[in-house]
């Protein structure tokens, strides 16, 4: 069962090829992420899927229907959070979501319980202008969910939030797929894609470079593990003599051992009693990005 199927999707703004022959499928019930730097083409791709933009070429099916031209039977089945927080000016949180509920022909009581679901019940009577960044994003997600859509599309839901607020939002986002709902998000946070998504498409310059589960993407890197220990507990010479260590790096008081056999090396470190404050880092999506684009990831 596919929720979204996109084939050879392309669009250009003047001479900028914003989206360039993009093909992918999102399965029903899946948490799907599009990961890329600013200007990669994520928003434009979503706008074509939502039916806000007409593609120059390619085909799109959303829940078995074509989003363009505007399909008023498809719209109630989709919930969208646009990248900007698009609210009515000077309304309170409750009035805001209540208005959206009415636009979708949904009872206003559903709106109130949705406010509760995103933890905004104590802010219900605050105007949107007075909400914090995290509260604004939660309200905007609540507005996208108020009509209980089958498919939710969120464009950078955690943009410009501090790490604490981001992690709070993750809990809400994780819950979205529980009722079999399909979720598509874009992000430029690697850790977010790793933490939330079943599958991730890595997008750069209008193209999809890789598409798989975060674990599979990292596995395919076949990159070595890096073990950092306190340089005062282990001399560099001793470190090179440990079995399986293929290289070392020193940086002030941190000594990093590079290895493809981390369990053996960790065992040896335990024997040498220098496990205090040890850090093990295997490959991450950052490394995947570096490998596929040849560039350091700089969101």
């Amino acid at each position: 069962m596919t929720a979204i199927s996109v084939e050879n999707l392309s669009i250009a703004y003047g001479t900028v090829q914003a989206v360039d022959h993009v093909t992918f499928e999102v399965r029903r019930g899946e948490f799907f992420g599009i990961l890329g730097t600013n200007g990669a083409g994520k928003t434009t791709t979503l706008e074509m899927i939502e039916g806000l933009r007409k593609p120059d070429g390619g085909s799109i099916q959303v829940l078995g229907r074509s989003p363009w031209p505007r399909d008023s039977e498809l719209l109630p089945r989709i919930g969208v959070q646009l990248q900007a927080s698009s609210f009515f000016e000077r309304l309170t949180a409750r009035e805001q979501i209540g208005t959206f509920a009415s636009l979708y022909g949904v009872d206003r009581s559903a709106a109130d319980s949705m406010l509760e679901a995103v933890g905004l019940d104590d802010k219900a009577d605050a105007r949107v202008e007075d909400l914090s960044g995290g509260q604004t994003q939660r309200l905007s997600i609540a507005c996208a969910l108020v009509h209980d859509p089958e498919l939710v599309i969120l464009d950078e839901p955690t943009a410009s939030l501090d790490p604490h607020a981001r992690r709070n939002l993750w809990d809400i986002l994780r819950g979205l797929t529980h009722s079999g709902r399909t979720v598509v998000i874009t992000t430029h946070h690697m850790d977010e894609a790793e933490a939330l998504c079943d599958r991730v498409a890595i997008m750069d310059a209008g193209r999809i470079l890789e598409l798989d589960s975060p674990a599979a993407l990292i596995r395919s890197l076949d990159s070595p593990a890096r073990i950092a220990v306190d340089a005062r507990t282990l001399a560099a010479d001793d470190a090179t003599r440990i079995n399986g260590v293929t290289g070392i790096e020193t940086d002030h008081d941190v000594l990093t051992l590079v290895t493809r056999d981390p369990s053996t090396v960790l065992g040896e470190l335990a024997r040498l009693q220098c496990l205090d404050g040890v850090q093990v880092r295997t490959g991450t999506l950052d490394d995947v990005f570096l490998t596929v684009t040849g560039r350091e990831y700089n969101p």
Binding site: E50, G51, L52, R70, I78, L82, Q83, F87, L103
Partner: peptide
Amino acid sequence: NGWRNSKLLRRLQLAPVS
């Protein structure tokens, strides 16, 4: 202008209202 810049106009386009 406000509705265009805040993208509310686009958001309303996504709701099933004419």
